[in-house]
Nucleic acid binder design. Structure first.
Length: 931
RNA sequence: GCCGCGAUGGUGGAAUCGGUAGACACGAAGGACUUAAAAUCCUUUGGCCCGAAACGGCUGUGUGGGUUCAAGUCCCACUCGCGGUACCA
């Protein structure tokens, strides 16, 4: 019986569709479970084999949960706004919506072929007005709320207005514009002049997580700092809760650590330093209050508000020159070139403890956005201050006994204090506490907590995004009435910025509301992805983002799968967004994702041919990989990427290679055997037998330019979706990054084919103990694997069980039916067909095990585990005194065990001194002692 | 620099609670079937040594120490690789 995978897969995919097997209802008596994949951005290149890794894992888990009797929500959608579609639009004039929809169509067809159990009736896409209505709606709520830090909760801005009216007599005297300006300092979505990452090549600002090493994450273009008036979200207000919430979610420690670092809580103190000759002090933030006695100068960020006040006339020219130079530098230059720069302001501060006059400098190593934008410098115990002090010849006062600061600073927070007045002799930790007490009591400062996390910049000067529901009157923003949502993205004549440099929406006709101009920026990519998981719960609701009823049923995402690259972007923003909605009483859980797993990235595995470039090279000769280190070729070959799709198990298809590109048309080879003749005479037939050219390989990023992109459609055409699914899991642990290496796929395919052959004729005979043992081992293993997301180790377990059953020639329904049920989450199509072959019941479309929706075949329980734990107890005497009970495999001869114990005197003596509860023995070695 | 993760045969990887390291698969070698090839099946496959035989010995999980009757697994120090982050005071 032939394993015709494409016939089987098409048959069942059609049957599941027809039966609506994966449609999920919000009304069910079953327990609920919500499994979510991070939805993809539909790029023009389509899916490659790396994308479905996480989807397959979540699909296995979803199917398993269904079989276990859960009502499982497992949806899919598209993060449809994004830069590539817009860049493409600028180049071609093609509307991004058109390309996006084409790409989505292609993605869906690719995903369907893999046999996922998504409820497609719940599909969302972020560029759909029915969807972005709720993105705009949430923005309006953020505009109309402020964060009450005392209550640690978002509250309506009207409450703040009422408080101002009541408590501040000046409020009533303000004009409306002045009132609005004041409220802007409190709104959760607010407009502000902020230093932003401006990317000239993309013509837009970017959030901190969209920039890496001074380059844009998308495209890798240089980014510079600019001050612009932008929409921002007050994410920083939620920093304490974002941090605290991490203790209540089931995420990996590494991801939690990444978020904790990004949020960057640090406990310290704010201190005031008086300025010589001025009334007002300046405030700094420090985590090392213990080092105040070593403060020998102070430094301001170039953008600090203090700069203007502290620059003396004598220094003004020099300072202005420096500020202009800092402003010109790009972010990239600043990172690349870390030399010490700075300028003296002319003013002096007074060290509050030593009463020394200390100079105040301005330098770009101090950041305006963190703390107060000003620092006290302790060169002896901070490497940055140290470098600065050395450069400008400033005094360095060591404060910790034994610290040698002649060559470098001593940054560690350990040791005993000296040169520090009342702190002398204290350990650093105690000194910090003591000094905090001191500054609080004397009023020099106060204990505070600082966060690194900054507000999210929410404006993008682009076309392809959600329009802000905002119009401007008298220069102040007002939100569009909720009844007028969604505010549709307008058509534009040109996707590029306007001639006078305004964002692309400036090209739209009548972009006004009630006669007032509308906002020209659009929202960033993370806007639409911040609450999409809620929309799946209730995707067609026109009255609300999600009804409270639907939210109460599904609660939150139970299992979220996606890449760790979203740790400091999407996963922060959506937690913030969710907490905001929670404050408004719209959702019942303040954390959106209960358990989160990061699947690793699938890297490419590139193949190379080696062009001979030594003496007499024609440029047409290629050396087999196994020969390139031979003396005659060593260092005389040049590796060239070759399309992995014309290489099989590292053996090049030379005909395909010659046809691949014109430059290889006349390629000649030195084959693995060291000769150049392409055929070997066949002694039997005299027929042509092609010889082997071996390619080299390397692990690289999967990309077009490396010719190492493998398309899942091709794999499915060759091996079927079930093989693809199994193989992706077989490749290695889910969380680990690994290269896509097709070399092992035959083994997995062979397993399915062999398994398939067991189902040719089904017998009703009672299973033997041996057969049951195989099955029970498998049940135990696969259950453990799925519940622990250890999918890769299930495939070998299936192979072992299958080999055992194959050897026993087992064709019994009692074994093969549960086997199919176990296999169904991994390989649903073949399992469905296997299951129906076992089943004598009348065939019902879509009602089987692969659909795992109508539970005809519940997950098998393993009640006869004794068949696996096949052990026996032996009483053993040692020296006639100490008596043990040893547990060992049933077939271990008694003499063997006793001989063993006596032969291991150390162990025996150990056992004599400790009385173990249980000792498990195998011939030759003790394997387990339970105390 | 800091934080996190990892290192096991020719390759991908297994060993789930400290208990027979190398499961399973690929590749390779040999064999059966075949006019031949493909497909399929069987055998061998970490290294070294002894041997007529082995259910024989030694060695072995990046390096060096340690804890333990027992360490791939725990502890300390280090090397290399990967990911994140970076003047965060």
């Amino acid at each position: 019986m032939e394993y015709n995978f494409s016939e089987i897969e098409q048959k069942w995919q059609a049957a599941w569709d027809k039966a609506n097997a994966y449609k999920v209802s919000n009304e069910s008596d079953k327990p609920h479970y919500y499994v979510l994949d991070m939805f993809p951005y539909p790029s023009g290149a389509g899916l490659h084999v790396g994308h479905p890794l996480g989807y397959i894992a979540s699909d296995i888990y979803s199917r398993y949960k269904r079989q276990k009797g859960f009502n499982v929500l497992h949806p899919m959608g598209f993060d449809a706004y994004g830069l590539p579609a817009e860049q493409y639009a600028i180049q071609t004039g093609q509307h991004p919506e058109v390309t996006t929809n084409e790409n989505i169509k292609r993605y869906i067809s690719q995903l369907r072929k893999i046999g996922f159990c998504y409820d497609w009736s719940r599909e969302v896409k972020t560029c759909d007005p029915k969807f972005y209505k709720w993105t705009q709606w949430a923005f309006i709520q953020m505009f109309n709320h402020y964060y009450d830090t005392a209550a640690q909760k978002a509250k309506p801005i009207s409450e703040l207005v009422a408080r101002f009216e009541k408590e501040d007599p000046a409020w009533a005297t303000l004009t409306e514009k002045e009132q609005q300006e004041r409220l802007m300092n409190y709104r959760i979505a607010y407009l502000a002049d902020t230093k932003v990452n401006w990317c000239p090549a993309l013509g837009t600002v970017l959030a901190n997580d969209e920039v890496s090493e001074g380059l844009s994450v998308r495209g890798g273009y240089p980014v510079e700092q600019r001050v612009m008036r932008q929409w921002c979200l007050r994410v920083s207000a939620y920093a304490p809760r974002l941090l605290e919430g991490l203790d209540r979610v089931d995420w990996t420690d590494s991801l939690k650590d990444t978020q904790r670092n990004w949020i960057g809580r640090s406990e310290g103190a704010e201190m005031r330093f008086e300025i010589k000759g001025q009334d007002a002090p300046i405030t700094i933030f420090t985590t090392r209050a213990d080092t105040v006695f070593g403060v020998t100068f102070m430094v301001l960020a170039p953008e600090s508000e203090y700069v203007e006040r502290l620059v003396t006339d004598g220094q003004r020219d020099e300072v202005e020159q420096y500020l202009a130079w800092v402003k010109r530098r790009t972010e990239r230059e600043r990172i690349a070139d870390r030399k010490v720069t700075g300028v003296f302001s002319g003013s002096y501060a007074i060290n509050p403890l030593t009463n020394n006059e200390i100079p105040i400098y301005i330098s770009d190593y101090v950041l305006a956005g963190y703390g107060t934008g000003a620092i006290m410098a302790v060169p002896a115990h901070d490497s940055r201050d140290y470098a600065f002090a050395k450069h400008f010849g400033l005094p360095i006062v060591p404060l910790i006994e034994g610290a040698d600061v002649s060559e470098q600073s001593f940054d560690a927070k350990e040791g005993r204090m000296m040169n520090s007045g009342f702190l002398n002799g204290l350990e650093v930790k105690d000194a910090i506490a003591r000094m905090k007490e001191h500054i609080t009591n004397t009023g020099i400062g106060r204990v505070t907590v600082n966060y690194r996390l900054r507000d999210a910049i929410f404006s993008r000067q682009r076309y392809w995004g959600e329009p802000f529901p905002v119009y401007y009157k008298d220069g102040m923003p007002y939100t569009v009435d909720e009844k007028d949502l969604p505010l549709l993205l307008p058509e534009v004549r040109d996707f590029k910025p306007t001639a006078d440099g305004r964002p692309p929406l400036g090209n739209a006709d009548n972009w006004t509301y009630k006669g007032y101009p509308l906002e020209l920026c659009t929202m960033p990519g993370f806007a639409g992805s911040s609450a999409y998981y809620l929309r799946y719960m209730d995707p067609t609701n026109d009255e609300a983002l999600v009804s409270r009823q639907a939210n109460d049923y599904w609660q939150q995402v139970d299992l979220y799968l996606g890449g760790s690259e979203h740790a400091t972007g999407h996963l922060i923003y959506s937690r913030f967004w969710n907490k905001f909605l929670y404050d408004l009483g719209l959702v019942c859980k303040d954390e959106p994702f209960r358990k989160l797993i990061n699947q690793g990235m699938i890297q490419g595995r590139s193949n190379f041919v080696y062009r001979y470039i030594g003496e007499g090279a024609t440029g047409n000769l290629y050396i087999s990989y196994n020969l390139i280190n031979n003396p005659e070729y060593k260092d005389k070959v040049q590796p060239i990427h070759v399309n992995v799709n014309i290489v099989n198990n590292d053996v090049l298809d030379i005909t395909a290679f010659r046809n691949w590109m014109p430059e290889f048309k006349n390629a000649q080879f030195i084959f693995a055997d060291g000769t150049s003749s392409e055929i070997e005479d066949n002694p039997y037939l005299g027929a042509a037998m092609p010889k082997q050219y071996i390619c080299g390989w390397a692990v690289e990023k999967m990309s077009k330019s490396m010719f190492n992109v493998v398309n899942p459609d091709d794999v499915i055409a060759k091996y079927g979706a079930d093989t693809l699914r199994l193989y992706e899991m077989f490749l290695g642990p889910l969380e680990m990054s690994k290269p896509w290496d097709t070399n092992g796929i035959d083994g997995v395919h062979r397993f399915l084919r062999k398994a398939w052959n067991m189902y040719e004729t089904i017998s009703d005979d009672a299973p033997t103990a041996e057969e049951l043992k195989s099955l029970h081992k498998l049940i135990k293993k696969v259950t453990w694997d799925i519940e622990n997301f250890s999918f890769n180790t299930s495939i070998p377990a299936f192979m072992i069980a299958q080999n055992e059953l194959y050897a026993l020639k087992c064709n019994k329904r009692a074994i093969l039916e549960p086997f199919a049920v176990l296999l169904a989450p991994y390989a649903p199509h073949i399992a469905e067909e296997m299951y129906h072959r076992c089943n004598t019941l009348p065939f019902r479309e879509g009602a089987g095990v692969g659909s795992s929706f109508v539970i005809d075949a519940p997950w098998p329980e393993c009640n006869e585990a004794y068949l696996i734990e096949d052990t026996q107890k032996y009483p053993v005497q040692f020296n006639g005194k100490v008596r043990f009970t040893l547990e060992c495999p049933k077939d271990t001869p008694r003499e063997e065990v006793e001989k063993f114990v006596l032969a291991h005197e150390d162990t025996a003596r150990y056992l004599a001194g400790n009385t173990p509860k249980k000792v498990i023995v195998v011939p030759g070695r003790i394997v387990n002692i339970v105390m």
